[in-house]
Simulated scan of single mutants.
Amino acid sequence: MPRNIAYLRVSNLDQDLEKNKAYILHLANEKNLGKVEFMQEKVSGKVSWRQRKIAQVLEDMKKGDVILLSEFSRLAQSMLECMKIISITMKKGISIYTVKGNWMILFRVKSWR
């Protein structure tokens, strides 16, 4: 059964995780994704994604799993790092949904005739 992992990263404790959780749960419900597991951490975006929990999340995820985000900036500080993560998810068959911007990067199996 596919897993739906919501990744929440804040750089300081003043940021409102509960509001982000509510938005993500609303998105998951809207897309009929089912149960959502939350992975959260407090760490600066300046710390490489490879040294944060998102690296382990990506390692553990399998084809058909979904990552939910409040926005792409929660993944990484730079566009280059975001693109690297997206590349990994596409290779592994993992879809990404974001609340802000309503982004959907979906893995789809192509059938060739």
Results as ranks from 00 to 15, higher is better:
residue 21 K to G: 01
residue 11 S to Q: 14
residue 70 S to D: 08
residue 65 D to Q: 03
residue 59 E to P: 12
residue 84 K to I: 09
residue 6 A to P: 06
residue 28 A to C: 02
residue 84 K to R: 13
residue 63 K to S: 09
residue 111 S to I: 12
residue 96 I to M: 02
residue 95 S to G: 02
residue 103 W to C: 10
residue 102 N to T: 08
residue 35 K to T: 07
residue 63 K to Y: 08
residue 109 V to W: 01
residue 45 G to V: 13
residue 17 L to T: 12
residue 89 T to L: 07
residue 41 E to P: 15
residue 101 G to I: 06
residue 45 G to P: 07
residue 52 R to K: 13
residue 61 M to E: 02
residue 4 N to M: 03
residue 28 A to K: 02
residue 99 V to L: 05
residue 55 A to L: 10
residue 69 L to K: 09
residue 47 V to W: 07
residue 64 G to L: 04
residue 67 I to V: 10
residue 70 S to G: 12
residue 6 A to Y: 00
residue 70 S to R: 15
residue 59 E to C: 11
residue 105 I to M: 10
residue 50 R to M: 12
residue 8 L to F: 06
residue 36 V to F: 01
residue 10 V to I: 15
residue 31 K to F: 09
residue 67 I to T: 06
residue 107 F to S: 05
residue 96 I to Y: 01
residue 19 K to I: 09
residue 64 G to W: 01
residue 3 R to C: 00
residue 57 V to P: 10
residue 68 L to Q: 04
residue 36 V to R: 04
residue 17 L to I: 14
residue 62 K to L: 04
residue 91 K to S: 14
residue 28 A to W: 03
residue 19 K to Y: 09
residue 39 M to V: 15
residue 73 S to A: 07
residue 2 P to S: 09
residue 84 K to V: 11
residue 87 S to H: 14
residue 23 Y to E: 05
residue 10 V to P: 09
residue 89 T to F: 05
residue 70 S to A: 12
residue 86 I to D: 05
residue 44 S to K: 15
residue 23 Y to M: 07
residue 45 G to S: 13
residue 46 K to E: 10
residue 94 I to A: 01
residue 17 L to A: 09
residue 11 S to D: 13
residue 15 Q to L: 13
residue 21 K to V: 00
residue 34 G to R: 07
residue 30 E to P: 15
residue 49 W to P: 10
residue 67 I to P: 07
residue 29 N to G: 07
residue 28 A to E: 01
residue 69 L to P: 07
residue 93 G to D: 00
residue 91 K to R: 14
residue 103 W to P: 03
residue 22 A to E: 01
residue 113 R to D: 11
residue 104 M to S: 11
residue 40 Q to R: 14
residue 67 I to R: 12
residue 56 Q to A: 15
residue 30 E to K: 15
residue 109 V to E: 03
residue 55 A to C: 14
residue 79 M to L: 11
residue 27 L to Y: 05
residue 110 K to L: 09
residue 69 L to F: 09
residue 35 K to Q: 04
residue 38 F to M: 04
residue 7 Y to T: 03
residue 3 R to T: 00
residue 34 G to S: 05
residue 15 Q to A: 12
residue 75 L to R: 11
residue 102 N to P: 05
residue 94 I to C: 05
residue 98 T to L: 01
residue 60 D to L: 12
residue 73 S to M: 02
